[in-house]
């Protein structure tokens, strides 16, 4: 006899809930290992005096968003287009926007 539909549904739901619980437990367990790796990376930042994550390498202003200026994204002229796609993901740093006019 085929199992009832409710049995199959509740079984699937229970399996998915177990998957979610497993996901949270896995994240918890990995966090300890991750913290050690993060501490080593923090030491690397101190050693190399780094300022940014290496996520986007196509343009200087998205490779080092903390150190960018207003002119670089619009390389050629004030009215030229910003032409690198990652400029849509990485917005200008807040300190550049708030200090604009003071130091630039």
């Amino acid at each position: 006899m085929a199992p009832r539909r409710s049995t199959m549904f509740l079984g699937t739901l229970a399996a998915l809930l177990l998957g979610l619980a497993g996901m949270l437990l896995h994240a918890r367990a990995e966090e300890q290992v991750a913290r050690q790796a993060l501490a080593r990376n923090a030491a690397r930042v101190r050693q190399l005096r780094l300022t940014d994550l290496c996520l986007c390498t196509e343009a200087s202003y998205t490779r080092h968003p903390t150190l960018t200026d207003f002119a670089t994204p619009f390389q050629d002229a004030p009215m030229s287009w910003e032409h690198f796609p990652t400029g849509a993901v990485i917005q200008p740093p807040p300190h550049l926007v708030t200090r604009h006019g003071t130091h630039d």
């Binding site: 290992v33 290496c54 990652t86």
Partner: peptide, 18 residues
């Protein structure tokens, strides 16, 4: 999306900081 037009992209594994 993060690569854009570049050919260089880090192969990293993010820590599951949920």
């Amino acid at each position: 999306v993060l690569k854009g037009w570049s050919t260089l992209y880090p192969s990293f594994r993010l820590p599951p900081l949920l």
